[in-house]
């Protein structure tokens, strides 16, 4: 799988698709470097587009061989995340494929 911005041929999810961010807290049990903010975990969002394919930062942080992972822009409604906020406001987050599942 070639890496870089715009390299999305291996993308599992398509624009418009509903996805759920895995509701996992691996940093509770091991020292990890994660790029999935805690507030997005377990939330359902919509794929805006696949942005590219990049070496997994969870590996890079420990200087070990890093598998290529597809990175997406995923859009979430703000109010359900915080229990307040203005209807219609949204959050747009870069998330790696291995953190996403079909919803």
């Amino acid at each position: 799988m070639s890496t870089g911005a715009g390299q999305v041929s291996a993308a599992r999810f398509a624009a418009g698709q509903s996805v759920r961010v895995k509701d996992a807290k691996p940093e509770r049990v091991a020292r990890m470097h994660l790029r999935t903010p805690h507030y997005a975990r377990g939330r359902i969002g919509r794929i805006v587009r696949a942005l590219g394919t990049f070496p997994n930062p969870e590996d890079i942080a420990f200087n070990r061989p890093a598998e290529p992972r597809v990175l997406y822009h995923v859009l979430f409604d703000q109010p359900p995340v915080w229990g307040d906020g203005e209807a219609g406001d949204t959050l747009l987050i870069e998330l790696f494929e291995h953190w996403l599942e079909e919803a």
Partner: peptide
Amino acid sequence: NLAPFPAQHDLGGN
């Protein structure tokens, strides 16, 4: 022995 969650740097909404 579980680490705190969210981690200290994971500041969104703190």
